[in-house]
Design a protein around this nucleic acid. Structure first.
Length: 604
DNA sequence: GAGTTTGAAACT
DNA sequence: CAGTTTCAAACTC
């Protein structure tokens, strides 16, 4: 905390008086003088080509969990080739801040650039901080968890060169408010609005966590964080004379005739499609959260927003929003169903990138495959062990027929075998304990839902006996492995178990890897789609972001509203798993007793 | 571009 | 927690 002074900048009251001294100190520290005003490009003499590391990080991380090490969440994350949507650089003022609370208003919503963090991205925003050293939440860069880069700030400490001070500032900020770096706009389970027409039963309302406190802007200017975030004010707000509510004439007037608004939705959708795949609580990139009540954001597959309908959805009546409108103002109903979130009355659905890749039946099939694999491995090992037993027996007979000295040696071998046999016995004992344990363990298992034999079989470590018995339908494993056996069955079983486990885990790993691959493919598609469409947006109202399968005009209809449609991977789910599993090992297809049909069904 | 307004953040 | 101050963005001219 030697740097505490660094984070404890302008000592409150005396700041103005001692500002000179303060800055002098800081100048000493930085040996830089930015008091000359705005620097053209890199005021902080940022040496590294540090793009504003889309830090998405910190908010996301903070979102997902408490921050034991807050500072660590504000690190660069350069290697991740994640995609982000940033506003198109129009004017500097229009540049989209990274901060969740600073999305552009519909009026001036910039067209976002979807950029890969591979070096191509452009800077999102440039702050102009002068007195905060960019180490307070006043600074959008800092607030968003990014380093300043190319900003017009003065005396900036929000850079790598001043990481220590920065870290201090982060800590201090988090100390004041542990949620400081979390997204302010969040969807939360809520729900009064009927969503039966949606796919799910839950509702999620997007709203400002803290709410705004506007007094004069009517919440219809970008001073208002809610408005800026393109959401309606909620019960969290303590605003006065709010006009940012469903049914507000002023608000409608604001949006009517402003087709540019739809860019916001495109941006939202694109962002959501790209970054939101992780979940609603994912990255806090501002556009993701941008949403308007009564208007739907569609991340997903079925986009059915109507740019005009959204206004039609506004409640009629009350033009004077009650301070706590939530009850009467069902803001942003978001129906969540599985991995899909449907917002609002229309059908904008948020879906995970993996939503179409894996389905319940696929999991069942996968489990079946793994079970079969396990059994096959057990059988194979049993056969091998049987042959080995035979060889050992033969050798033993040979030894018995040899000389006395040889017999002595034979005894030694025999003792060794006995030792192993004892191991086997003990192992078996352990195995025998297994079932008992399993019965007790069973209490630990999910109750109410008995585990399937297949699942139990997969629990190699915990229930060896059960596994071995069940995994060898022919009773192979039980053969020759009892406490009286003089054979090294303990080793054999251990090996068999290990092999079973290895095979199962290997296949499962392959499966997961392929799943990841498919997810990445889909993500890539989404991002390229969004980029393409956002780059081509001419008439967002009529075209918006089209279906990636642009050739299929028939599918264009529902997406002719400027919302991204996330096109699922070409592979069908079942085929996907088939691929995932069967292609991971042709040996699977040789397993007897399994369907070997050559059709598109699963082939293990 | 300068000045004003605004509301969040910071502080008391 | 409420009131005040500081701050930077939004806005206006």
């Amino acid at each position: 905390m030697g740097e505490s002074e660094g984070s404890e900048f302008p000592p409150k009251k005396q700041q103005q008086q001692s500002e000179n001294a303060y800055f002098q100190t800081k100048k000493l520290a930085r040996q830089l003088d930015f008091t000359q005003g705005v620097l053209p490009d890199h005021p902080q003499s940022q040496p590294s080509p540090l793009q504003k590391p889309p830090l998405l990080v910190s908010p996301a991380a903070a979102q997902s969990q408490p921050q034991p090490h807050p500072q660590s969440q504000l690190q660069l994350q350069p290697q991740v080739a994640e995609i982000q949507v940033v506003p198109q650089q129009q004017t500097q003022q229009q540049q989209q801040p990274v901060r969740a609370v600073k999305p552009e208003s519909p009026k001036s919503t910039p067209i976002p650039n979807i950029e890969l963090k591979d070096g191509t991205p452009k800077k999102q925003r440039q702050c102009n901080c002068k007195h905060s050293r960019c180490l307070k939440l006043y600074c959008e860069c800092f607030a968003s968890g990014t380093y300043c880069d190319g900003c017009n700030c003065v005396n900036c400490y929000n850079n790598v060169e001043n990481e220590a001070a920065r870290r201090e500032a982060v800590e201090a900020t988090l100390e004041r408010n542990p949620n400081a770096f979390r997204p302010k706009i969040a969807s939360s389970p809520h729900g009064t609005r009927d969503s039966r027409e949606e796919t799910g039963d839950g509702l999620v309302f997007v709203k400002h966590n803290k709410g705004c406190h506007c007094k004069k802007s009517g919440c219809l200017k970008k001073y208002c964080e809610c408005f800026q975030a393109n959401i309606l004010c909620s019960e969290n707000c303590k605003c006065m004379d709010c006009k940012n509510f469903e049914g507000s004439e002023e608000r409608q007037a604001l949006f009517h005739g402003d087709h540019g608004n739809n860019m916001a939705y495109i941006q939202q959708a694109a962002n959501a499609a790209i970054t939101g795949a992780i979940g609603s609580s994912g990255y806090a990139s501002p556009p993701v959260s941008r949403k308007r009540k009564g208007q739907e954001l569609f991340f997903g597959q079925t986009v059915k927003d109507q740019s005009f309908d959204r206004l039609g959805h506004f409640q009629q009546g009350s033009h004077t929003r009650p301070p706590a409108p939530s009850s009467s103002l069902p803001s942003n109903p978001v129906a969540r169903a599985g991995n899909a979130i449907t917002l609002g009355p229309s059908k904008i659905t948020y879906r995970s990138l993996l939503a179409d890749i894996i389905q319940p039946q696929d999991l069942k099939e996968l489990c079946s495959v793994l079970v079969v694999l396990s059994g096959e491995a057990a059988k194979t090992f049993s056969d091998q062990r049987n042959s080995m037993e035979k060889r050992v027996e033969d050798q033993r007979e040979t030894l018995l027929a040899s000389s006395t000295q040889e017999r002595l040696q034979s005894h030694k071998d025999s003792d060794a075998d006995k030792i192993v046999a004892n191991d086997c016995s003990s192992a078996n004992h352990a195995d025998k304990v297994g079932p008992d344990d399993s019965s007790s363990d069973g209490a630990d298992m999910p109750k109410g839902r008995p585990m399937s034999p297949g699942t139990l079989e997969l629990m190699c470590d915990e229930q060896d006996t059960m596994l071995m018995a069940a995994a060898s339908p022919n009773g192979l494993m039980g053969h020759g492995c009892n406490t009286s056996s003089q054979l090294p069955c303990g080793q054999g079983m251990a090996k068999a178990h290990a092999e079973q486990e290895r095979i199962v885990l290997t296949k499962f790993r392959d499966c997961l890897n392929r799943l990841i691959t498919f997810g990445e493919i889909k993500e890539t598609k989404c991002s390229s789609l969004a980029r393409t469409e956002l780059g081509n947006q001419k008439d967002p109202l009529s075209n918006g972001i089209a279906n990636t399968r642009s050739g299929t005009g028939s599918q264009r209809g529902p997406f002719s509203n400027g919302i991204v449609k996330v096109v699922p991977p070409t592979a069908k789910p079942t085929q996907m798993v088939t691929s995932i599993v069967s292609t991971s090992g042709s040996d699977l297809q040789k397993i007897p007793g399994l369907p070997q049909n050559g059709d598109n069904k699963l082939k293990y």
